[in-house]
């Protein structure tokens, strides 16, 4: 019977499931599904995966060694996406890699549909995280902390952490991910931390500093005056800056 491994949709969870699947059924067809999103099928064994860091570290090491770093990062990004088949696709490219001559070249094997899917997913995630590096806006609270709330489709927080930590090393800042209920916390001069199951305290977030309103107004004024009226082109603006990013940007609020 086909084995289906059931895990949480987290990196540790998926890596643990991949570990179990690899140990037990690397020669067979196996599936990986996420808790809460299963549609039961006939003739399948459903196995609940025992998730832990040790398994995850093992499988990460395996991927790095046998598929190379290029593939590792592609897999890493793909697993952060919002696609249901992502874990299975990764499992299948690991199987496929055993079949080809040089397993490090697995990501070039775009003819394989699973490789193509992982490639596309990793692009989707890194593109979205680039968008957030561009369009995230911070607001300053009374205690000087910079706060931002985003609702991305994929789990971009770990991808943008490095960029902002390098950019604002002396600031205290946090980014809330409303979709996945996670938060990225950065304390001055310390490395970033991810907080799972984070709920933003709306009362605390409401206490903006006195300067905040002022700079928002200044920015809105700048945004308006820098555009050339004779060249106006809202369609072009929308291609570059899709509407779904605009709700967090002060220059588009209140219009």
């Amino acid at each position: 019977m086909k084995r289906i491994y059931v895990c949480h949709d987290t990196l540790t969870g998926i890596y643990s499931a991949l570990h179990d699947a690899w140990v037990e059924s690397r020669n067979d067809d196996a599936g990986i599904r996420f808790r809460g999103k299963i549609q039961q099928q006939f003739f399948c064994d459903y196995l609940i995966v025992d998730e832990n860091e040790v398994k995850a570290a093992k499988i990460e090491r395996l991927i790095k060694r046998h598929l190379g770093y290029n593939a590792y990062w592609a897999v890493y990004h793909a697993l952060l996406s919002d696609e249901e088949r992502k874990a299975e696709a990764v499992f299948h490219i690991m199987q496929e890699a055993r079949r080809i001559q040089d397993s490090h070249k697995i990501m070039d094997h775009l003819g394989d549909e699973n490789v193509a899917l992982v490639f596309e997913l990793s692009r989707r995630v890194s593109n979205e995280s680039h968008m957030y590096e561009e369009f995230i806006r911070f607001r300053e609270l009374q205690n000087g902390v910079l706060v931002s709330e985003i609702s991305p489709r994929t789990q971009v927080l770990t991808c943008i952490a490095e960029h902002f930590a390098d950019r604002f090393p002396l600031e205290n800042w946090m980014i809330f991910d409303r979709t996945h209920r996670e938060a990225l916390l950065h304390k001055a001069k310390e490395p970033c931390r991810i907080l799972l199951d984070a709920y933003p305290d709306s009362e605390m977030l409401g206490k903006l500093s006195d300067d905040e309103k002022r700079y928002e107004i200044l920015w809105k004024g700048f945004f308006k005056s820098v555009s050339i009226r004779e060249r106006e082109n809202p369609k072009l603006q929308q291609t570059h800056l899709p509407i779904r990013y605009r709700d967090m940007m002060p220059e588009f609020s209140g219009e």
């Binding site: 820098v226 809202p234 603006q237 800056l241």
Partner: peptide, 27 residues
């Protein structure tokens, strides 16, 4: 250019646009 940890800011080779004004040009 990476930040050196003593101030604020870094630079990316490809550049980063932060907004797009009504004429579609990047800000």
């Amino acid at each position: 250019r990476r930040g050196d940890g003593s101030g604020m800011g870094n630079c990316r080779k490809a550049g980063i646009c932060h907004s797009f004004s009504a004429d579609g040009r990047c800000i």
